[in-house]
């Protein structure tokens, strides 16, 4: 694969009215906060930049833009070119509870105009946030109304803008961010192709590729019977489960949440077998397979063997290739040894 392998910086603007929940969602998705921790966050002053290394050759350059009127005024005037040029994605957050929805939309449309001037090719995602505060039966209707109204104000972006109803209290936030990330990943197609091949080989019912630190889904492959799984939101749910587990391990073992990763998790039952293991430096692979020890062990070995090919797709070749290689190698050998032993034990038994 000789696709472009340089580090891709993607500029992501996170905007919306003050108090809409921008920094809260950023902290949850990228900084291992749990929902109730976000109470501690104060107002964002001006722009907070964060660089998030995501899937190797993708670097998110996230601009969390404080939403108070003074700052917004500033973005639109003095810093207009600075803020709005070369933007890959604009994420605009609306607070569903906002009393001045019309005013929010006016502010939105002036930002959209600025974006249209400086980066006309950017993608726009609108998150209608804090949906948990709306009664369940009204949610869908309210969401659609608002989305339609906002679309009207989206000018040149109107045909492409995407809407998500989100809340930090359930998995809807992961769903929205998964879509956004998927859009940003440069080689999503080739990863998907390789994953499908792998799924065929290991006879998996489903393979899900997760980014390691954020637990966001990169992509997934579903085969045969699993397509009927009644839980259509299972990818986000697993994201959320993994995240919660990470929190709990971090809390009780006293290690920072960032490094409380598990090397492997396996669950075996009479109906399915499931395991999550590290695939590359930045990704975890979750596999749901039929309930059989042979398939399970074979799948684990095959996934181990497939690692280098994924690493090729994932890791940028330029920075420190030697280190990366060594790292991947040492991890592999350890795994294989263990693998063999398990396999042997399985045959004897």
């Amino acid at each position: 694969m000789n696709t472009t392998k340089r580090q891709k910086q993607r500029k992501v603007l996170l905007m919306g009215k003050s108090g809409a929940g921008k920094s809260s969602m950023r902290s949850i998705v990228f900084s291992n906060y749990v929902a109730k921790d976000v109470r501690r966050l104060g107002a964002t002053i001006d722009v907070e930049h964060s660089n998030i290394k995501f899937m190797g050759n993708l670097m998110l350059n996230l601009w969390d833009c404080g939403g108070q009127d003074g700052f917004v005024e500033n973005y639109l005037t003095h810093q207009r070119a600075h803020v709005f040029s070369s933007v890959a994605v604009l994420i605009f957050v609306f607070d569903i509870e906002s009393r001045e929805f019309a005013a929010d939309v006016i502010s939105y449309s002036s930002i959209i105009r600025a974006l249209g001037e400086h980066s006309p090719s950017a993608a726009v995602f609108v998150l209608i946030h804090k949906m948990d505060l709306v009664q369940t039966r009204l949610r869908q209707q309210l969401f659609e109304e608002r989305a339609e109204y906002i679309r009207q104000a989206s000018e040149s972006f109107a045909p492409t803008v995407e809407f998500f109803a989100t809340s930090i209290w359930d998995q809807s936030l992961y769903k929205a961010w998964t879509q956004i990330i998927y859009f940003l990943i440069p080689n999503a197609r080739s990863i998907e192709g390789l994953l499908r091949e792998l799924a065929e080989v290991v006879e998996a019912r489903e393979l899900i590729l997760y980014e390691r630190t954020t637990c966001l889904m990169v992509t997934h492959v579903t085969r045969d019977v699993e397509a009927d799984n009644p839980f259509s939101d299972r990818f986000e749910r697993i994201s959320s489960i993994l995240k919660t587990h990470k929190q709990s391990m971090a809390k009780h073992t006293g290690i920072p949440a960032g490094s409380a990763n598990f090397a492997e998790m396996q669950i075996k039952t009479g109906r399915f077998m499931f395991f999550i293991t590290r695939l590359t430096e930045n990704t975890n692979l979750a596999a749901a397979i039929p309930p059989s020890e042979q398939i399970f062990n074979a799948a684990r070995i095959n996934i181990t063997l497939a690692r280098p090919r994924f690493a090729e797709l994932d890791i940028a070749s330029k920075p420190r290739p030697a280190v990366q290689q060594a790292f991947a190698h040492s991890a592999d050998s350890g795994w294989e040894a263990r693998e063999r032993e398990n396999a042997a034990a399985g045959f004897v038994g």
Binding site: A260, A263, K268, G270, S292
Partner: peptide
């Protein structure tokens, strides 16, 4: 999942009835 079709020979052979799970940590 209802009726398993195809290669269920291997399936009936090995699925464990009691769920088990293992988490190994990285560090």
């Amino acid at each position: 999942r209802g009726e398993q079709n195809g290669d269920d020979e291997s399936l009936t052979e090995t699925g464990n009835n009691d769920a088990e799970s293992l988490i190994t940590m990285e560090r």
